[in-house]
Structures are given as C-alpha cells and as structure tokens.
Amino acid sequence: NQASVVANQLIPINTALTLAMMRSEVVTPVGIPAEDIPRLVSMQVNRAVPLGTTLMPDMVKGYA
C-alpha cells in the first residue's frame, strides 16, 4: 500500500510546509505520495489543513 502525506498538526492557510508538519501514513483515499515530502518543504497550503488530514495535490500551491 502506498503511504500518503498526512498533516501532523493544524496547518493554517498560506503556511509554508516544514518536515515537522507532515508524516507518512497509509490512508484511503490516497493523497500526495510520502516520497514527495522533501519536495513539499517550503510549499504553501492554500487552505487550513486540520491535524490528521491527508494532503491532496490541490491543497498545496504549485504542487499539482
């Protein structure tokens, strides 16, 4: 099963992502692949992401 990127904390809108904000977890539906975590660092979210939410490509500016 593919691990996805999950929010490790509440991430406010327009926040630049850091490693501490993300974790890898096997979830359904599948979100951004966990191997993309290094690429996500310093990218901004375009909405508030609650703790435990799977990051989807449309939630991260410049990812999709």
Rank of each mutant, 00 (worst) to 15 (best):
N1H: 14
N1L: 13
N1A: 11
N1Q: 14
Q2C: 03
Q2A: 14
Q2D: 05
Q2G: 15
Q2T: 07
Q2E: 08
Q2M: 12
A3F: 14
A3Y: 14
A3V: 10
S4F: 03
S4D: 01
S4Q: 02
V5H: 00
V5P: 02
V6S: 03
V6L: 07
V6W: 02
V6Y: 02
V6C: 02
A7S: 12
A7G: 04
A7H: 01
A7F: 01
N8T: 15
N8K: 09
N8S: 08
Q9H: 09
Q9F: 04
L10I: 14
L10Q: 09
L10M: 14
L10S: 11
L10H: 11
L10G: 15
L10P: 15
L10N: 14
I11V: 12
I11F: 02
I11S: 00
I11N: 00
I11E: 00
I11L: 08
P12D: 06
P12M: 11
P12C: 03
P12A: 11
P12H: 05
P12L: 10
P12F: 08
P12S: 07
I13Q: 13
I13R: 08
N14F: 05
N14P: 01
T15P: 00
T15S: 12
T15W: 10
T15K: 05
T15N: 14
A16T: 07
A16C: 03
A16H: 09
L17I: 11
L17Y: 00
L17C: 02
L17N: 01
L17R: 00
T18V: 06
T18N: 07
T18C: 03
T18Q: 09
L19N: 08
A20E: 12
A20W: 15
A20H: 13
A20R: 09
M21N: 09
M21I: 04
M21S: 06
M21T: 04
M21K: 04
M21R: 03
M22Y: 02
M22V: 11
M22I: 10
M22G: 01
M22L: 13
M22N: 01
R23W: 04
R23F: 06
R23T: 09
R23V: 09
R23P: 01
R23N: 09
S24W: 08
S24C: 03
S24V: 10
S24L: 09
S24A: 14
E25C: 03
E25G: 10
E25W: 07
E25K: 11
E25Q: 09
E25L: 11
E25V: 05
V26L: 10
V26F: 04
V26Y: 12
V26M: 12
V27Q: 08
V27D: 02
V27P: 02
V27R: 08
V27Y: 02
V27W: 03
T28Q: 10
T28H: 14
T28K: 12
T28I: 09
T28M: 08
P29Y: 05
P29I: 10
P29E: 08
P29G: 06
V30E: 06
V30G: 10
V30F: 15
V30N: 15
G31R: 02
G31S: 02
G31E: 01
I32C: 02
I32D: 00
I32Q: 00
P33N: 06
P33L: 11
A34L: 04
A34P: 10
E35F: 13
E35L: 12
E35I: 15
E35S: 15
D36G: 11
D36V: 06
D36Y: 10
D36M: 11
D36H: 07
D36T: 07
I37E: 04
I37C: 02
I37L: 09
P38E: 11
P38C: 03
P38S: 09
P38H: 12
P38V: 07
P38R: 07
R39Q: 11
R39E: 04
R39A: 14
R39N: 12
R39V: 06
R39T: 08
R39I: 12
R39W: 06
R39G: 08
L40V: 07
L40D: 00
L40K: 01
L40C: 02
L40A: 02
V41W: 04
V41N: 08
V41E: 05
S42E: 13
S42L: 10
S42V: 04
S42C: 04
S42P: 02
S42G: 15
S42H: 08
M43N: 05
Q44A: 11
Q44W: 11
V45Y: 00
V45C: 04
V45R: 00
V45H: 00
N46T: 11
N46C: 03
N46A: 13
N46E: 15
R47L: 15
R47F: 13
A48V: 13
A48Y: 10
A48W: 09
V49E: 02
V49L: 12
V49K: 00
V49H: 02
V49D: 01
P50F: 13
P50N: 13
P50M: 15
P50V: 06
P50Q: 05
P50D: 12
P50E: 06
L51S: 10
L51K: 15
L51N: 09
L51W: 10
L51P: 15
L51F: 13
G52P: 01
G52E: 04
G52W: 06
G52A: 07
G52R: 05
G52Q: 04
G52Y: 05
G52F: 05
T53H: 14
T53G: 15
T53N: 07
T53R: 10
T53Y: 13
T54E: 01
T54A: 08
T54N: 02
T54F: 02
T54C: 03
L55H: 00
L55G: 00
L55A: 01
L55C: 02
L55I: 08
L55P: 01
L55F: 07
M56L: 14
M56P: 02
M56E: 12
M56C: 03
M56S: 15
P57R: 15
P57F: 09
P57A: 09
P57C: 04
P57L: 04
P57H: 11
P57M: 08
D58M: 11
D58W: 13
M59S: 07
M59I: 07
M59K: 02
M59W: 14
M59V: 08
M59Q: 11
V60D: 01
V60C: 02
V60G: 00
V60Q: 01
V60S: 01
K61P: 14
K61E: 15
K61Y: 14
G62N: 12
G62S: 13
G62A: 14
G62L: 08
G62H: 13
G62K: 08
Y63E: 05
Y63C: 03
Y63W: 15
Y63H: 06
Y63N: 08
Y63A: 04
Y63G: 04
Y63M: 09
A64F: 04
A64S: 13
A64N: 14
A64H: 09
A64T: 14
A64W: 05
A64K: 03
A64D: 14
A64Q: 15
A64R: 03
A64G: 13
